Simulated scan of single mutants.
Amino acid sequence: MKLALVGDIGGTNARFALWRNETLESIRVLATADFASPEQAVSHYLAGLGLAPGSLGSVCLAVAGPVGGEHFRFTNNHWRLSRAAFCRTLQVERLLLVNDFTAMALGMTRLREHERVLVRPGVAESDSPVVVIGPGTGLGVGTLLPLGDGCWKALPGEGGHVDLPIGSLREAAIWQHLHGQLGHVSAENVLSGNGLLLLYRTLCALDGHSERLATPAEVSAAALAGDPVAVEVLELFCCWLGRVAGNNVLTLGARGGVYIVGGVVPRFAAFFQASGFVRSFASKGCMSGYFEGIPVWLVTAEYPGLEGAGVALQQANFRRMGGA
């Protein structure tokens, strides 16, 4: 039997693994900037394992953006993909593309207890939807729907591009400045790695500070070291993440809980847990009581998107073989 490969492709990194017996093997992380196309990256991955094109029977790639049709253009990197050309180049029998947060959401079904940190205590309702939201290169949002008997369906979406919600006069002033620069201000403009730097520059412009920090990593490091401007940036970031996550809970009736994923928040996990995230999450006026008992977790698992891509491939193969 030929091998199955799964991939989780973001703006900066492409993660690949073999999927065998419902388990990830030979995980590698490659920089998307180092390759002209996904075919080149996969070929490089296979060569590193001593495998030639034609070794793969099926591939599932989790990709950022709406999935459908023959051609796909990656949202946060320079790659493009033609399904037919990909299969022809790599001699693959079957290619499945899924939205990256569909895969991320499915990955939550395989989490082990030590791979998540409780941020807001509560008891998840097993028959209610679950929100999965994560700042990274962009902002991803996914939904898990319970189907019964321990089965779940992941709903793709582009919730990172919703309007940035305003909860205070300070936030309104920041929004106004951003609107002057960007026009439409989305949640992703702020809730992403680059969003940290954009917020920092905005506060410097509004308050007359000189800009000393030049990267998102410098902003978060300065905040953890006590720099007052950077501390406000990180606090605003956490509060806005809470507000956007709470909006999703109300929209979906997601009393099954919320998972915070992605590469940004774990870098300042202790700050995040002590921030205004929880307050902003449930501050919804007359509907604030709705949030009673809804838990929130910060996910620390290393490769949940790859795990979810494996689950997606497994489910697709099950359906193709006539499963219920």
Rank of each mutant, 00 (worst) to 15 (best):
G10V: 03
A214K: 09
T143A: 11
V92Y: 06
E115P: 00
A36I: 05
G323W: 04
P304M: 01
L90P: 02
L118A: 13
L298Y: 00
W19I: 08
V311N: 13
G148V: 05
N189P: 01
E93F: 05
F272N: 09
G180W: 02
G246W: 06
L118R: 12
L306E: 12
F272K: 12
R212S: 08
H184Y: 08
Q181I: 07
P121M: 11
C238R: 05
W152M: 09
G167P: 09
F101V: 12
L97I: 00
A217N: 09
E232R: 03
H177I: 06
A301K: 08
L18K: 14
V119W: 11
G107A: 02
S126N: 14
D207E: 11
A270V: 14
E125A: 07
G242L: 08
L252C: 05
N77K: 09
A214Y: 07
E70K: 06
A64N: 03
L96D: 05
M287H: 14
R94H: 13
V261I: 14
G183K: 01
P146E: 13
R170S: 03
A214E: 11
G242I: 03
S126C: 15
L147S: 12
G180H: 00
D207R: 03
L51T: 07
A301T: 10
L5S: 03
A47P: 15
L49F: 08
C204M: 06
E22S: 15
G285E: 10
R243I: 12
P266T: 04
H114G: 04
E302Q: 12
E113H: 13
G157S: 06
S220K: 02
V59W: 10
L298P: 13
P53H: 02
V123T: 15
G310A: 00
S210M: 10
E292K: 14
R243V: 08
A84D: 14
D8C: 11
W19V: 07
G150K: 03
